Simulated assay, not measured.
Amino acid sequence: MLKKILIACGLLVLSLLIGVGVLYWQTQTFLTTPAEEQGRDIVLNVVPGQSLDRVAAELEAQGLVSSAHKFRLMVRAKNQGTAIKAGEYLLNTSWPPPQILDMLTSGKVLLHKLSIPEGLTWWQVARLVEKSGLASFDSFDKAVHDPALLARYGITGSNAEGYLFPETYLLPRPRNKNARPIVEAMLKTFRQQARQALPADRMNPKELLRLVTLASMVEKETANPAERFAIAGVYSNRLHRGMLMQCDPTVIYGLGTSFDGNLTRKHLRDATNPYNTYKHKGLPPGPICSPGKAALEAALSPEKHKYYYFVATGENGRHKFSKTLVEHNRAVWKYQIRRRR
């Protein structure tokens, strides 16, 4: 009888050991084996407040783990049930489960490339952002006109025109296509670049507005980097003598999105356009685009010369600079009127 009991106990212990061994083997297999040998990139979006059960189920549904149940057990065993962070993650089906968990708890969310070239208006930037799929045009519009946001960055105008720094950004996808984080990233970058380019005494809001406005005109007037300082010098000379700026891009900006690409004499004679520098002396009310760092530097240190006029030559973005109106009219005839004829 005792022998039978001992045999039964031995068999029970053996079965337990086998069960434990099988469970250990299954656990180790799950921890070390990816869901797929041939890896595929999968973008997983973890929304704020999403439960571990929902995350695990989504991982299994996307083919990133072989078992949602085992993934949950692993997470709880590591006491990381609340460590998974919301965001958009780029994962791969060839990663073992611990690597996937490490990524989800790291907060290293997927970054999207957004390139903003120099010389765009705020609404052109908004269209690029909307085209990227990161945020909506309307939310961008709302953010660039937000008085609280403008005050935080020392912007005195009614919108953030001129302060949306042109740069290539790597950005996480905002929640609900809200452009505010994108606008803030551009404003922060502008502040950093301005502090590098401008002395501290030129960083007060009023002086900064003047510099950015002048820089935006320089940015729109030439695509040739070598001429930026010279063009800034022309506008500086005109301001000093109380002359009209006579800058076509300012007039175009004042026409807004209604401009069809054809600037007419009627437009140049329209005194109701506050940005018409053919009718209103001095700089326009504010920037007309987002200037780059080089244009800001040109506005800060205009070239010293005696030129008051310039006209495009049609050659590699170059201009012909003139000291007198007579010289300028000759240049206009040579490079514009006669060439068109």
Rank of each mutant, 00 (worst) to 15 (best):
T105R: 11
T105H: 09
S106H: 08
V109H: 01
V109M: 10
L111H: 11
H112I: 01
K113S: 13
K113Q: 14
K113E: 09
E118D: 12
W122H: 14
W122N: 13
W122P: 08
W123H: 15
V129I: 14
E130D: 13
S132N: 07
G133P: 05
G133Y: 03
L134E: 05
S136A: 12
S136W: 06
F137C: 00
V144C: 07
V144F: 03
P147T: 09
A148R: 15
A148I: 12
R152H: 13
T156F: 01
G157C: 05
G157M: 11
Y163Q: 04
L164W: 04
L164Q: 11
E167Q: 14
T168W: 08
Y169R: 09
P174Q: 01
N176P: 02
K177M: 10
N178L: 11
N178P: 05
A179K: 03
A179N: 09
R180N: 06
V183E: 02
E184K: 09
A185W: 02
L187D: 08
T189Y: 01
T189E: 15
R191E: 12
R191Q: 14
Q192A: 14
Q193L: 01
Q193W: 01
R195P: 00
R195L: 10
L198K: 12
P199S: 09
A200M: 06
A200C: 04
N204V: 08
K206E: 15
T213K: 02
L214I: 02
A215N: 11
S216A: 06
V218W: 04
V218M: 06
K220I: 00
A223G: 15
N224M: 10
E227L: 09
E227K: 02
A230E: 13
G233S: 07
G233P: 11
G233M: 09
Y235C: 03
Y235S: 10
R238W: 08
M243E: 08
M245P: 01
C247R: 00
D248V: 05
